[in-house]
């Protein structure tokens, strides 16, 4: 017992630093995939996408830019994986200038994955299309409720939306089964909820950065928002759900899950250290070393 305590007492800060460092670095090279139990708000998005019949259209709005990419990108990739696997037709719009660039980047990655796993090509115009950026925010959403193709007229290559096979028969936003928004601020998920869910009764879900999450949670509680992924944790939750149903995706980059590993380990580590510190303290107290 005494040796054990003495061993614990010899822990100094350099030891803690080293452990912290490796706790962060090792999972980044060799992901551990520690258990993640997805939150209900994320589960409900998964259930919804899972329940949408094949070939239906969903709308994804990329409302973030490179600055908030670390948080929003993993969520978008996880959702896209699921949606492509389900053979849903995805129409992507952007309320932020760089949203389309982000979407292209995400889909380029997924194209590789699908080719390798399922030998399937994801084709622009058939499986997905990306409509161009327009200034307007909430007013665009408002207009798209009346005339979708009239609002988002062109795709990012300048092709008319009414000529793309995916979007040509979309009349209003009601033709979509679900709206997903990945938002880092305004305009973003808030506007989607306020207009699309309230006015057109199309379910809205999406992901937000950890910082904006408290602002959006009231909509979740009031049921206006179908589901919400908050920060890296939300992405990790969704990735877990996808990987459970479609294991092949496990071997690809799961930024959310791999980001959760160091978090899990360091948090656990700190907790263990706190327990050790208290064992030492109680021992010393019993021995009368501290008053």
């Amino acid at each position: 017992m005494n040796i054990f305590i003495r061993l614990l007492k010899s822990i100094d800060r350099k030891f803690i630093f080293i452990i912290t460092f490796f706790a962060v670095v090792i999972p980044m090279f060799y992901p551990l995939y520690l258990p993640i139990i997805p939150e209900d708000s994320v589960r409900s998005i998964f259930k919804k996408i899972d329940a949408i019949p094949e070939g239906s259209k969903i709308l994804m709005s990329f409302d973030y830019d490179p600055a908030s990419k670390p948080e929003c990108h993993p969520m978008a990739i996880a959702n896209l994986r699921h949606a492509f696997k389900k053979n849903l037709k995805i129409v992507i719009i952007q309320l932020w200038p760089f949203g389309g660039a982000m979407a292209t980047e995400a889909i380029d990655e997924l194209k590789k994955e699908f080719k390798e796993i399922y030998n399937r090509d994801i084709i622009y115009g058939d499986d997905y299309c990306i409509l161009g950026y327009k200034v307007g925010g909430a007013i665009l959403i408002q207009q798209s409720g009346k005339d979708f193709n009239g609002t988002f007229m062109e795709d990012i290559d300048g092709k008319k939306a009414s000529e793309i096979s995916l979007t040509k028969d979309v009349k209003t936003i009601k033709d979509f089964e679900l709206v997903l928004s990945y938002s880092a601020g305004d305009p973003g998920i808030k506007q989607w909820v306020m207009i699309v869910d309230a006015q057109y009764k199309v379910p809205v879900a999406g992901g937000v950065t950890a910082v904006t999450a408290p602002e959006i949670t009231p909509y979740l509680n009031s049921g206006q928002l179908l589901g919400l992924m908050a920060g890296l944790r939300g992405a990790a939750d969704y990735e877990t759900l996808v990987n459970k149903k479609y294991p092949p995706f496990k071997k690809y980059v799961n930024s959310g899950t791999s980001g959760m590993d160091p978090q899990n380990i360091v948090h656990l580590m700190i907790i263990i250290f706190i327990i050790i510190a208290n064992i030492i303290y109680w021992h010393d107290k019993k021995m009368g070393l501290v008053r």
Partner: peptide, 20 residues
Amino acid sequence: AEFDINFQIENMDKKDYSVA
């Protein structure tokens, strides 16, 4: 009770405004 009042806004000068 909990209910929605839905607004639709028509712009008379036909410019892109979002009105809250």
